[in-house]
């Protein structure tokens, strides 16, 4: 079986520039100062994950999964990486497959945005479209059906421990460093749950007093791309509901309103799940302010708005 050599780091002084994998992570921590202008003592900060080369937070987990698979020779030029995705993980796999030389097959609901479809086509990934009425759960069922075929390595981001470990070793430590360990609250949406699980485990090790709040859609029927309503969805194997100090539910309309507000008051064009995370974070900020407390609230902004600009809510 042909294998793919693990990416090399260049010799100092001879190889210039930054390779793809080294550009994943170490994203900026942006201050949302206009949102909290009337909340003294409150700082609201967001990890700008669209600075990853594939444009989203999913580069982190996808890179961790791919590197593990390369080490174990589970992907190679003749063996396809297979997974279910609602979009951004697929883009990350497609980008990594193109750069590292392995083929990628994705199962994805057909109602992902047209922008995503064009990006995947540009990277050359194979996409199997699943019933939009079944959302990401339909894509998961399709990937499970195909997984028995030996031509595939089923990466299974919803069960793969690399999904949360990438955030445990990467994102969480970046947050601690960027806040000087002054973070008091962490807020993140639940999709694969990898971001919340990994960051929370690390933050709690360092300081158990950091309050970690998970966020999910308020209803099984929602428009928050990539997020899951845990009470009714296929629950990811890596999800531990006991880890969150509390859970906040966000309505799709509140996320849309926050996306527009962030664009027009902070000059930030964020995606819908990022807007939902900020809406949840602002509720925490207002609670803390009402209690007369100071707080450093950090959330994850999974991607930017560029893949959602065809959504009609921008014009409503």
């Amino acid at each position: 079986m042909a294998t793919i050599a693990a990416p090399k780091s260049g010799s100092p002084g001879t190889t210039l520039g930054t390779p793809l994998l080294a550009r994943i992570g170490n994203t900026p921590l942006v201050r949302l100062e206009h949102l909290t202008a009337d909340l003294p003592g409150i700082q609201l900060l967001g990890k700008a994950e669209w600075h990853n080369p594939g444009g989203s937070v999913k580069d982190r987990a996808a890179a961790a999964i791919v590197l593990e698979a390369l080490r174990n020779e589970q992907v190679c030029p003749g063996k396809r990486l297979l997974d279910a995705t609602s979009g951004n993980t697929g883009i990350a796999y497609a980008m990594l497959g193109a750069a590292l030389g392995f083929p990628v097959t994705l199962c994805m609901p057909s109602n992902v945005s047209p922008e995503r479809k064009r990006i995947l086509r540009a990277y050359g990934a194979e996409v199997l479209w699943t019933d939009p009425a079944e959302s990401s759960d339909g894509a998961i069922r399709k990937a499970r059906e195909l997984a028995a075929d030996p031509q595939y390595f089923y990466a299974d981001q919803y069960s793969n421990p690399s999904t949360w470990r990438a955030h445990y070793s990467g994102t969480a430590n970046e947050i601690l460093e960027q806040t000087g360990s002054r973070i008091t609250h962490f807020v993140a949406g639940l999709g694969t749950t990898g971001t919340f699980m990994g960051v929370t485990r690390r933050l709690k090790e360092v300081n158990p007093k950091i309050e970690c709040i998970s966020m999910q859609p308020d209803s099984p029927f929602h428009g928050l791309e990539g997020l899951k309503h845990m009470a009714t969805a296929i629950v990811p194997a890596i999800y531990d509901p006991g880890l969150a100090d509390r859970n906040v539910e966000v309505e799709t309309e509140a996320a849309y309103a926050m996306a527009k507000r962030l664009a027009r008051t902070e000059g930030l064009l964020v995606g819908i799940s990022a807007a939902a995370a900020v809406a949840a974070s602002l509720r925490i900020a207002e609670e803390q302010s009402a209690l007369g407390k100071e707080a450093v609230i950090v959330t994850i902004l999974p991607d930017a708005a560029d893949k959602y600009l065809s959504e009609r809510f921008w014009g409503e």
Binding site: S86, G87, P109, S110, N111, V112, S113, P114, E115, R116, K117, R118, L120, R121, G124, A125, E126, V127, W129, P132, A133, S135, F221, H222, G223, E225, I272, K307, Y308, S310, E311
Partner: peptide
């Protein structure tokens, strides 16, 4: 009549023109 959540744009009309590879 189908009721489809708009995960992020797209939908059945877009599905018809979806890239296959």
């Amino acid at each position: 009549l189908s009721i489809i959540p708009s995960i992020a744009g797209g939908g059945l009309a877009v599905q018809a023109g979806a890239p296959s590879a």
